[in-house]
Nucleic acid binder design. Structure first.
Length: 487
RNA sequence: GGCCCCAUGGUCAAGCGGCUAAGACGUCGCCCUCUCAAGGCGAAAUCAGGGGUUCGAUUCCCCUUGGGGCUACCA
C-alpha cells in the first residue's frame, strides 16, 4: 500500500491584494507539496459575490507569480478537478445539496435576518453561545408553501446532530474537541443559491482530493463545521494543520494600520521574493539548525510541519530588512541593476539620459552592501549624479573652511588633472600622495576632498566615489564648491 | 458573554523532567576606518503569576491573568 501523493491547496478569496498572512499560507503549502513531490492547487473562493472581484484575483495571482509560488493545478492552468473558481462550480454544489436535502441531513430555512438577529440577542443575553435553535427544522409542506407565498427566500441549513463531540485532529495543535451543541444548524447555501465558505470548501477539497489542509489559525474554530459536512456527505476528512497567526506590532491581527500588509507593497518597495519568503517562513516555523538565510530550494529540502509553532508571531520589519539585505548581498551586478531600475527612473536619475548603462551598473553595485530594499537605492546613488553639490549642512561647510582645505583641494585637483586613469588603486595612491605632499593627517585630506566633491561628510569610500565620478565631473564639482565658498 | 487556540529576552525563537536556558534581529560597547554603512568581536536582556505531580520543573496537570481567533445568508 503506497501513500497517496500529497495534495495541498491555497484557496484565497479575491477580496483584496495578497495579504502577508495569505502569502505565508501559500508558501507553507507550496513547500509541503514540493518537499513531498505532491501537487499544489490554487483555487479561488469567490462565493462572496459582494466583495470578490476579478481584479483582486489578478492581483493575487500576480503576487504569487512574483513570489515564485507556481501552482500545478488551478485557475488558468486547469487540471483534472476543475473548474477551480467556486462560482463556476455551482452545479456541483447543487448536486450535493440535493442529496443532503433528500436524506434529511439538510433542510430549508425561511427565517429572516431580523428573526435570526432577535434569536441571537436573546441567547447572548442568557449567556449562551448565539446559534441557530432550529426554528425551521421540522417545517411541514404547508408551512413551507406559506413562507414561499410570503415571498421568503430559503437558505439551506445542515442538520447538526446534538450532544456530539466533534474532533479535529490537527497536525500542529493535536486533538481539539468541540461540542456540537455549541454549533447549531448552520447555513450551507445562501438564499441566492450560492454555497457558504464552510460548505463549498469541503466539497471542493473532497473533489480535488486534497490530502492536507494547511491554513491560518483563524480557521480552527470553523473546522468542526467542516468536519460535520464531511460526515454528512460521507467523506473522510483530510489532515488539518492550523498555523499560528501573524500579528502586528501591537499584537493584534495584522491590518492596514500596521503598515504594509500586502505582498505587492513589498514588491513595490524593492524587496526580493526570496527575502520576503525567507522572512515569512521563519514566522511560525523554525529550522533545526542554526542557518537562517535560505534559498527557496533549500527550504523545499528541509521544510516540514513538525517544527511549526503554535504561538502567534509578531511581524518585525527590522528582521525582514536584515534578511532581505542578506539576499541582496548575493545579487550580481546585473541583478542589482534590474532591482534598481524602477527606482532610478522614479528618482529621475535616468531622465538626463547621458549616463551609460555600464556606468550605471557600477554605480548601483556600490549600494549592494548598504541597502535592505530597492527603494533605498536612490538615496545612496544620488551622490554620483550632477556637476555640483550643495553643502549638506554647517558641518560640511566648516570642513571646507578649514585653513588647510584650500591647499589640499589644489593638490588634489592638480593630481586628478595629471592622472591618466582613475581606478580604485590609482586613486588610493593619488590620495596617499596628497597626504604626503601636504604633510597633513589623513582625515584633514580626505574630508575636505569628500565634501568638495560630494557636499557631504559621509558617503561611499573615496576609492569608490572618485573613479566613478571621473576626472571631468570632479573638476566641475571642485570649481562649483570653490564658487560656493566665496559667496 | 460562550467556545477554541496560545503564553521562553523588545521581536523571531531552540528547548520536548536534570542545561551556566541555544541562535538570530534590534539595542549598547569595542575593533576596522577619511565618513556613513557593511563586516568582526563582545555585552545587557527571557521561562506571566499561583497551586499541584515529581527526588527534581521552562518542560507534565489545574487555576488565574494576559493575548488572539471563532461565534454571519464573510472567507
Amino acid at each position: 500500500m503506497q501513500d497517496r501523493e500529497m495534495r495541498v491547496r491555497f484557496a484565497p478569496s479575491p477580496t483584496g491584494p495578497l495579504h502577508i498572512g495569505g502569502a505565508r499560507s501559500a508558501l507553507f503549502n507550496w513547500l509541503l507539496a514540493k518537499h513531498s513531490g505532491g501537487k499544489f492547487i490554487l483555487r479561488v473562493e469567490d462565493t462572496d459575490l459582494e466583495r470578490s472581484s476579478r481584479e483582486s484575483e489578478e492581483d493575487i495571482k500576480e503576487s504569487l507569480c512574483w513570489l515564485g509560488l507556481s501552482w500545478d493545478e488551478g485557475i488558468d492552468v486547469g487540471g483534472p478537478h476543475g473548474p477551480y473558481r467556486q462560482t463556476e462550480r455551482l452545479d456541483i454544489y447543487r448536486e450535493y445539496t440535493q442529496k443532503l436535502l433528500d436524506s434529511g441531513q439538510a433542510y430549508y430555512c425561511y427565517c429572516t435576518d431580523e428573526e435570526l438577529e432577535d434569536e441571537r440577542q436573546k441567547l447572548a443575553a442568557k449567556g449562551q453561545m448565539p446559534r441557530y435553535m432550529g426554528h425551521c427544522r421540522e417545517l411541514t409542506e404547508e408551512q413551507k408553501d406559506e413562507y414561499e407565498a410570503q415571498g421568503r427566500k430559503a437558505t439551506v441549513r445542515l442538520r447538526v446532530p446534538p450532544n456530539q463531540d466533534v474532533l479535529v485532529d490537527d497536525l500542529v495543535r493535536g486533538k481539539v474537541v468541540f461540542d456540537s451543541n455549541g454549533i447549531g444548524d448552520f447555513v450551507i447555501v445562501k438564499s441566492d443559491g450560492v454555497p457558504t465558505y464552510n460548505y463549498a470548501v469541503v466539497i471542493d477539497d473532497i473533489l480535488m482530493k486534497v490530502t492536507h489542509v494547511v491554513r491560518g489559525e483563524e480557521h480552527l474554530s470553523n473546522t468542526p463545521r467542516q468536519v460535520l459536512v464531511y460526515e454528512a456527505v460521507g467523506a473522510p476528512t483530510p489532515k488539518f494543520g492550523h498555523v499560528s497567526l501573524i500579528l502586528g506590532k501591537d499584537r493584534s491581527k495584522m491590518s492596514k494600520r500596521h503598515g504594509a500588509t500586502s505582498v505587492e507593497q513589498y514588491k513595490k518597495n524593492g524587496y526580493l521574493p526570496s527575502g520576503l519568503l525567507n522572512f515569512l517562513v521563519l514566522l511560525g516555523w523554525s529550522p533545526s539548525g542554526e542557518q537562517e538565510i535560505f534559498t527557496l530550494d533549500e527550504l523545499v529540502k528541509i521544510f516540514s510541519l513538525d517544527h511549526a509553532a503554535k504561538n502567534p508571531a509578531v511581524f518585525d520589519v527590522d528582521k525582514l530588512n536584515w534578511i532581505n539585505a542578506q539576499h541582496i548581498k548575493k545579487l550580481n551586478d546585473e541583478q542589482m541593476y534590474e532591482l534598481a531600475l524602477p527606482y532610478l527612473m522614479e528618482g529621475g536619475f535616468l531622465l538626463e539620459g547621458k549616463y551609460e548603462r555600464a556606468w550605471l551598473v557600477k554605480v548601483v553595485a556600490t549600494t549592494r552592501d548598504h541597502i535592505s530594499c530597492g527603494a533605498e537605492i536612490p538615496q545612496h546613488v544620488a551622490v554620483y549624479f550632477g556637476d555640483g553639490c550643495e553643502l549638506e549642512n554647517e558641518e560640511a561647510r566648516a570642513v571646507l573652511e578649514e585653513e588647510s582645505a584650500d591647499e589640499v583641494l589644489r593638490l588634489f585637483e592638480d593630481k586628478v588633472k595629471k592622472a591618466e586613469e582613475l581606478t580604485a588603486e590609482s586613486v588610493q595612491a593619488l590620495l596617499k600622495s596628497v597626504v604626503k605632499d601636504s604633510g597633513l593627517p589623513g582625515k584633514k585630506v580626505y574630508m575636505p576632498i569628500r565634501v568638495a566633491i560630494s557636499g557631504q561628510t559621509h558617503g561611499p569610500e573615496m576609492t569608490l566615489l572618485v573613479p566613478l565620478l571621473g576626472g571631468e565631473k570632479i573638476l566641475k564639482r571642485l570649481a562649483y564648491a570653490r564658487e560656493k565658498l566665496k559667496g
